[in-house]
Design a protein around this nucleic acid. Structure first.
Length: 261
DNA sequence: ATGGTAGTCGCACTA
């Protein structure tokens, strides 16, 4: 079964339910994976999305922080999530599509400001999280897609300035090394770069820039990975940069990948 | 070198 999947860090699904609805109406991704929903599951406005045809959902949430949700117009079966680093937080939700493909929707910790595990427990948490991702998916069987805000921009062309970001959390060498190890050990392929191999590519621009569009100091923090069989079916990828310019936007843009039969 | 913005469990924490 062919499908288009989209991943989007929405930064509050309740505040931006109208933006989610606009994306569903205008872009019609079969499966929409949201991060930073910042809402208990029972307060997510699912009826708005159901009315538009996205009547299947799997979500995990907490009050105020984190939170991940999968909205779908094709049926979903629940799949057990992982309690990464034993924190009991809502950073992973998973579901199975009718074709048997498993969708993993992840929100990797941002990691704080200082890239030093000795002084910054958030950075330690982030590195442990990515290490556990590597171990967890190693030797997996079946087809799967892993999407989400992975909070790491691995390549030189995934940031506005490789040199100026080498000591900035999200692009430090230790993060990039662990990120690539997690991807390789899980047998994942980066199906966004597969289809958009050349040039700068960003999915996030800080709220703090005076003019995010003109300054264009972005980073590619949001990713779509697929297992080899599914990656072979991938047909195209796209980042909806214009969504960053919508009224009261998320600081992340939606990332899409289309898979064929 | 600093500070800039945004969201929520808001007068503090996260991103």
């Amino acid at each position: 079964m062919a499908f288009t999947i989209c991943t989007w860090n929405i930064n509050s699904v309740r505040l931006r339910a109208d933006l989610v609805a606009a994306l569903l109406r205008e872009e019609k991704p079969d499966v929409l994976c949201l991060q930073e929903t910042k809402s208990p599951v029972d307060k997510i406005p699912f009826p708005i999305f159901e009315q538009l045809g996205w009547k299947y959902a799997q979500a995990r949430g907490e009050k105020g922080y984190n939170g991940v949700a999968i909205l779908s117009r094709i049926p979903l079966e629940p799949v057990e999530h992982v309690d990464w680093v034993g924190k009991g937080d809502a950073r992973h939700v998973a579901a199975r599509l009718p074709g048997g493909e498993v969708v993993h929707n992840l929100y990797v910790p941002a990691g704080g400001d200082e890239p030093d595990v000795a002084t910054n427990p958030k950075f330690d948490h982030k590195l442990k999280f990515v290490d556990q991702m590597a171990a967890h998916f190693e030797g997996q069987d079946g087809e799967a897609v892993l999407v989400g805000d992975l909070n790491i921009a691995p390549g030189e062309d995934d940031v506005w300035s490789h040199k100026q970001l080498l000591k900035v959390v999200s692009h430090t060498p230790i993060e990039v090394e662990k990120f690539e190890a997690a991807r390789a050990r899980g047998g994942w392929e980066d199906v966004v770069r597969k289809h958009l191999p050349e040039g700068k590519l960003y999915s996030w621009w800080s709220y703090r820039a005076r003019d995010w569009d003109a300054a264009d100091k972005g980073r590619r923090l949001d990713h779509v990975w697929a297992t080899p069989g599914l990656a072979a079916r991938s047909q195209s990828a796209r980042i909806l940069r214009e969504a960053r310019g919508w009224e009261k936007p998320s600081d992340h843009a939606p990332v899409f990948v289309t898979f064929g039969e």
